[in-house]
Simulated assay, not measured.
Amino acid sequence: MPAGVARLLRPRVGDVADRVIAEIQRRVPEYARPEDGVYIKVLRLAVNQALHGFLERIENPRAAWDPEVFRTIGRGEAAEGRGLEPFQTAMRLGARVAWRRLTEQSEQLGLDPRTLYDLGEAIFVYLDQLADAAAAGFAEARAHAAGEMVRRRRRLLDLLLTRPAASPEAVADLARAAGWRPPRMVAGVALEERDGGSPLPVLPPDVLTGLDRNVPCLVVPDPGGPGRVQALENALRGWRAAIGPAVPLAAVANSLGWAREALDLGTRGILPRRRLLRCADHMATLVVFKDEDLVAALAEVRLAPLAHLRQNQQDRLAETLLAWLRHGRGVAEVAAALHVHPQTVRYRLRQIEQLYGEALADPDVRFELEIVLRARQARRKPPDA
């Protein structure tokens, strides 16, 4: 710019600012707040900062410049829940008004066409600089808000998994701050990375994630919703997982605990090693293996009549006895289940009757026998049988 251009334009900044503000309020609905005195004051401050900043830039183009005001505006747009489109529209309107006023007064100001052309180009460069500053502030605010929301959700997950359960009021307050709507039913999901370097799963926004915890986990709202579990299974490619039973929100720590037990039983081969193991399909096994020492002690008592037999004899009689208990003690049903001849079943049942005697008539004994025989079978069968 020729020397003195900025000094020539500076006395007219107030008039241009009034025109720019009026045009912005008329044309940009987001900024039309005539009844809000504080907002008008902020708008005027921003417009004056833009105009004076432009004059300073053309007067001292090599001077250090920090457009913090416009980064702040970008942060404010994010805080207001808007995108940058209204701000960009306002900037273009402001530039148009200023340029129009400049051309109208060019003769009076003694500005030659070349200087006008250079001023126009400088306006476009300056608009880009302001837009970049606002975009930087906007992105910073969005990232901060997203990070804060992640932190709140982590605190909410911690609160939900505490034992004893936190008060409903505390959960409701933190859920509100985290933008999470408490559901009626939830399920805990225990996770184990199956393949090294597996990508993080892309999960629905209402799922609370704890992938960075010592034992990774999720809390899934409304797990019984249509297609919910299937969508979860698709999202967890590269991970092994177990989903606990659906429970009220206050009991989600229990659901997650059962899911972790199921995942452990899957690792041991007692439950199937599927990508997503559903506890609801294996509740009896979870109950049986809840206290393995107690089940082992019961087995010592109830399987004592078989202890003196060879291992293959024990296996055949235990298998037959369990099938007999499970299938209503009918020979034909037992034979069909074991894929053997009914006469073979009768022979084995006679052996069992000789070993157990009248004890098999006691329903409590039969119940305890089924528990220990189911546990024995689960430890010995192939995991996907």
Rank of each mutant, 00 (worst) to 15 (best):
A3K: 10
R10S: 08
V13P: 01
V20Q: 13
A22P: 03
R26L: 05
V28S: 04
A32F: 08
G37K: 14
Y39E: 13
L43P: 10
I58N: 05
P67D: 01
V69P: 09
V69N: 11
T72I: 07
I73C: 02
G76S: 14
E80R: 15
G81D: 12
G81Y: 10
R82L: 13
V97I: 13
R101G: 10
Q105D: 15
L109N: 00
R114A: 14
D118L: 15
D132I: 10
A135M: 05
A141L: 04
L157R: 11
R163C: 02
D173L: 13
A177Y: 02
R194P: 02
G197E: 07
L200G: 14
V202K: 14
L203I: 06
L208Q: 00
G225S: 15
W239Q: 03
A242E: 03
I243Q: 04
P245M: 02
A246K: 03
L263T: 00
R268P: 02
I270M: 04
R275H: 13
R275G: 11
L277H: 09
A280N: 10
V287H: 15
K290A: 12
A297L: 07
E300C: 00
L303D: 03
L303S: 04
A304F: 10
R310N: 09
L321A: 01
W324N: 07
G328C: 03
R329K: 11
A335H: 09
A337M: 06
V345E: 09
R346G: 01
R366W: 09
Q377F: 13
P382C: 05
